[in-house]
Design a protein around this nucleic acid. Sequence first.
DNA 1: TCGATGAATGAATGCGATTTCAGCACGTTC
DNA 2: GAACGTGCTGAAATCGCATTCATTCATCGA
Lengths: 367, 367
Amino acid sequence: MVVTLRDVARAAGVSPATASRALSAPDLVAPARREHVQQVARELGYRPNRAARELITGRTGNLCLVVPDLENPFFAAVAKGVQARARALGFALLVADAEEDPRLESELVGHLGAQVDGVILCSPRMTDVELDRLGRDVLDDDVPLLLVNRLHAGLPSVVIDNADGIRQAVTHLYALGHRRIGYAGGPVGSWSDAQRRRGLEHASHGLRSIDVVDLGHFPPLFGGGVAAGDLVAASGVTAVLAHNDLLALGILSRLRARGVRVPEDVSVVGYDDIPAATLVSPTLTTVTVPLARLGRAAVDLLIEAGSVPTATESALTSAERARHTAPATALGSDRENAGPPSVLIGVELVVRASTGVASAQSSAAGG
Amino acid sequence: MVVTLRDVARAAGVSPATASRALSAPDLVAPARREHVQQVARELGYRPNRAARELITGRTGNLCLVVPDLENPFFAAVAKGVQARARALGFALLVADAEEDPRLESELVGHLGAQVDGVILCSPRMTDVELDRLGRDVLDDDVPLLLVNRLHAGLPSVVIDNADGIRQAVTHLYALGHRRIGYAGGPVGSWSDAQRRRGLEHASHGLRSIDVVDLGHFPPLFGGGVAAGDLVAASGVTAVLAHNDLLALGILSRLRARGVRVPEDVSVVGYDDIPAATLVSPTLTTVTVPLARLGRAAVDLLIEAGSVPTATESALTSAERARHTAPATALGSDRENAGPPSVLIGVELVVRASTGVASAQSSAAGG
DNA sequence: TCGATGAATGAATGCGATTTCAGCACGTTC
DNA sequence: GAACGTGCTGAAATCGCATTCATTCATCGA
């Protein structure tokens, strides 16, 4: 029924060893014979059995991606990029949704890590100790683990330039005349939220007479934004930075419901630039993150860091690979003992309709 | 380094055969011995090698999901449901994004089909002949293929009740006084679009003096809706049904840009109820589809139809499984020779702010 | 012309599990 | 007491492929 390598070998009149080589190490076989075997294999519709190959080589040809929530457009975009790049390199992709649960995250990494050549863990909620344990004890030593949107000693990672995005947003608002700016943060333990807070502090230090109001921590979802919206209205700020777009959209919605006009009364800035940011009215000014590129870079770095051989014949050359992820900046790779490499993905503010000149009225109310 | 079954056997003082049985067919081993082996395995941290197991059993413990676009919230929601159910049954899930390309779709099914126990193909764009070929030639006979949102002879499927959703929407609009209703369709070859057109025709036949205007076919994306918006304005309809929410949101946006008020001048109804439907203003009246349930039902039916043994010890009981997918209606499973079973997922209109009473003015303009 | 080098090939091994198959001890039945 | 099931166990045979090792044969240098 199913065609095996022996069948090919028999049909081609060679030994299984030669057939194997003709297909997966062509240089070792005389050209004429090689062609013949390949031809026969094609005619018979031979498909190598992955399990058998894996059993002997130890490599699966699979990568694994763990995200907190597949339905969240941020992670969906990353997943898309990861999937595309993985396939281009000949890998299949196992995707797991951790349902925002740190414990499930580790469990998934543990389970899936056993049957893949590398793991990409996206925006992990888990603690640093747990992360350490994963890298050390849970995964086999030859299964590299890469973090997206989080830095951790000893693990390679791909992160976005959180601080710079905030800086651009603050600068934009300052230029529009805003002097009292609110920040609606993400969850308490969030690494990227800590980064953004730091960037916010740093950026505001350089500006005269600016006042930053911490509105607190919120679930990075639409519902969180609804709650945040009331605090925005109560705080007397003329502009608000949200930890991400979903939060910003929630704020937008709540402000509208309360009759606060955007951007006339309050300006709102998001982060991530998810598709919905252009679907609403006013369209959302936000920090655009090249999420697909982020995903691609993650795969490339994972392969590189773990020195995982690409899975198939159709793997792109490394030159091509570099081209795909070009504009990213390598962190630490120029220092000699830099440990695992990290890639920093640049971001860019896109100004849309949710930000405008600070109104005198609101300014007065705020001051 | 890595603990193998032989190690466990040696440490427990039994043969590899007994060790194997103690772990994966406990009934065959004397209770005392069984406990002992299991204990030793736990202490040694034994993890069975999936490749070795697969090689001999022929089962991988993986399922595969192919979708046109992971970033599309419709497919993201389905993927989430599929993933959750697969994991609950002990399967890992390979996810592939076909980039809206029918050829890539088949290629992915071919590639991934070789390393999974079942394939779920979501809203395939491919032709019926191609679908036939997949089921017959490409996949191994013991790898079941299930379709989501498409019916095809010989293949099990999970579909949503397209016609009924349209019927509910039309009835709603009719009750609001709309007599001239536009339909902005999906892509030309789309199976679900054909279903909805049929449902539309059928529903309108039952209603007096109703006029349905076919606005044509559009890409089921925001951009398609922008184009459709102009046709809506030009057609003199007082209400429009869109093939899906993204399209509806595009229409909404375009109408607003042109100064057409929703719902005062024109009512808009979407389909799917994606998250963004409640993020916009006015919030979108739409047909809500329980996508996560759809995904879960797909997995269950796939397992059942292919009689794929669930992968692990932690599989839920069939009672539990039934509970998860309860409100779905089985199609054809009560006919004796019904062929592969299909499940019909019910839908429900949710009325929000984008539909209202038909205005006399627009009615006049339309009539 | 002869030994040495190297390319091309085939026989055989093993990856780590599952699964016959046969054997053994024990109890039951005629 | 012989014959026969029953319950557990271990030896050994796969599963499909990659790879080591040995062999053959042609080629080359001296």
